[in-house]
């Protein structure tokens, strides 16, 4: 794995690295990938992929809301966790 690939991954991951860190990640990820590439040697003919080991099925709930007894307090706590709020909304930078 080369530095350009690491830079591309960093961009996709929304992370920034120094040159030294980029080199370190290139080295470490290459070593990990070399190890996990042993899976190429496994005979997987006919094996279906498993995403969940215990059978998962979709669960629907009714499209109804339930008034929480402490709804206002909870909403305030959620907003307080954000760096900036205004009129009951989380305030963020312009997206466009």
């Amino acid at each position: 794995m080369d530095i350009d690939q690491i830079k591309h991954l960093a961009k996709l991951s929304h992370l920034a690295f120094t040159d030294e860190e980029l080199a370190r990640f290139a080295r470490e990820l290459s070593s990990i990938l070399a190890h996990v590439s042993e899976l190429e040697r496994v005979d997987l003919s006919g094996a279906t992929p498993t995403a969940h080991a215990v059978s998962a099925h979709n669960v629907f709930r009714k499209d109804e809301y339930e008034q929480h007894p402490r709804a206002a307090e909870r909403a305030a706590a959620l907003l307080d966790a954000a760096p900036e709020q205004e009129n009951g909304y989380v305030k963020v930078k312009a997206i466009l």
């Binding site: 690939q5 990640f25 990820l29 997987l44 992929p49």
Partner: peptide, 29 residues
């Protein structure tokens, strides 16, 4: 950060079949 980068790599286009799908098949085994 290392694991986010690694995960982003194995899920990215062109590598998905080689890594993620294969790992899920091994999981079945």
């Amino acid at each position: 950060k290392r694991r986010i980068m690694l995960g982003t790599y194995v899920l990215s286009a062109g590598y998905y079949d080689a890594y993620y799908k294969k790992a899920q098949q091994v999981r079945t085994k």
